[in-house]
Amino acid sequence: MAGTPNTSSSQVLQKLLNQKENGNVKPEMLHKINNEVERKMEQFDLQKKERIAKAVQDLSMLVINA
């Protein structure tokens, strides 16, 4: 059976968004947030490199035989 016209998910979504009175859409918000978070991750990335090296060294000496 063929679907009824105008039932694509994009159309449904647009209709629903219109119903929610979305007058305050800020188009670049996600991009800005991603950039802000990226800047704050520098310290984490430096620490991570040290952690990876330590973990490999630790595991090579760990004998599992119990």
Partner: peptide, 15 residues
């Protein structure tokens, strides 16, 4: 909601 909607990204008020 902050994210993509119908091909463009934005901030939407969603209950």
């Amino acid at each position: 909601y902050i994210g993509p909607a119908n091909g463009s990204s934005g901030q939407y008020s969603i209950p």
